[in-house]
Simulated scan of single mutants.
Amino acid sequence: MEGKLELTHTDYPGLRVIHVAASRIDSAAAIQFKDQMRALTDDLTYRAVLDLSAVSFIDSSGLGAIVASLKQMPSGIRLDLASLQEDVARVLRLTRMDKVFIIHDALDLAVAPNGH
């Protein structure tokens, strides 16, 4: 296994930003990603944004893990994506997941008070 996938978070009023500290979300990291996402979002009562600025590669398992994280969010709580690198954005477009997630070009746009 290459590097350990680590998720950290920053809380703002009414928003949790979850930072992915890994360059890849792939089959080797997918289960770890889902488990960490569940731990960070289980009891959320407000919106979350997944900061993907460090992620340069995502495969079908990684995409599946992100979608699974969306589905495991508490009822009525949104999971947005922010700061996608071009290859990751392309995967989301090709799979039409760009229609499922709200995607912010930059993290500061997602964090801004009108980011929702």
Rank of each mutant, 00 (worst) to 15 (best):
I31P: 03
R96I: 08
S61Y: 11
S53Y: 08
Q85S: 13
R78W: 06
M1V: 12
A39H: 11
E86S: 13
D98F: 07
L40T: 00
I18T: 13
F33L: 04
A28G: 10
A48G: 02
A39V: 07
T10E: 15
V17K: 11
E6G: 09
R96P: 01
D26W: 01
V20S: 08
G64C: 08
D98W: 04
S61H: 10
D59G: 05
L40H: 09
T95W: 11
A30T: 00
V55I: 04
V88S: 07
V20Q: 03
L15W: 09
G64R: 07
A39P: 01
E6M: 14
L44S: 08
H19C: 11
R47G: 01
D35G: 03
E6Q: 15
Y46F: 12
K99A: 13
R47C: 04
L50H: 05
F33P: 01
A68Q: 12
E86V: 13
V20R: 03
S27P: 00
S56K: 11
T41Y: 11
A82Y: 09
V49H: 06
V55A: 05
V49T: 14
L79S: 04
A82E: 10
M1Q: 09
I18H: 07
E86M: 12
I66A: 00
T10I: 15
S69P: 10
Q36M: 06
P13I: 08
I58W: 00
T45M: 03
S61R: 09
G76Y: 10
I77V: 15
Q72W: 02
S53V: 10
A89Y: 13
M97S: 14
S61K: 05
D98Q: 04
R90Q: 15
M1N: 12
D11E: 14
S23K: 07
V91G: 04
A29L: 14
L92V: 06
Q36S: 05
T8G: 15
R96W: 07
A22E: 08
D59C: 02
G3E: 14
I58L: 12
L50G: 07
L79P: 01
E2V: 13
A65M: 06
I31Y: 07
V88P: 04
A82H: 09
T10K: 15
S56P: 01
L52E: 00
A68H: 12
V55M: 05
A68Y: 11
F57H: 12
R47H: 05
S61W: 06
D59P: 02
D11G: 04
G64H: 03
L52A: 06
T10F: 13
A48T: 03
D80I: 10
L63Q: 08
V91S: 13
T8C: 03
V67I: 14
I58H: 00
E86C: 02
G3R: 15
Q72F: 08
S23P: 00
M37S: 04
R24I: 01
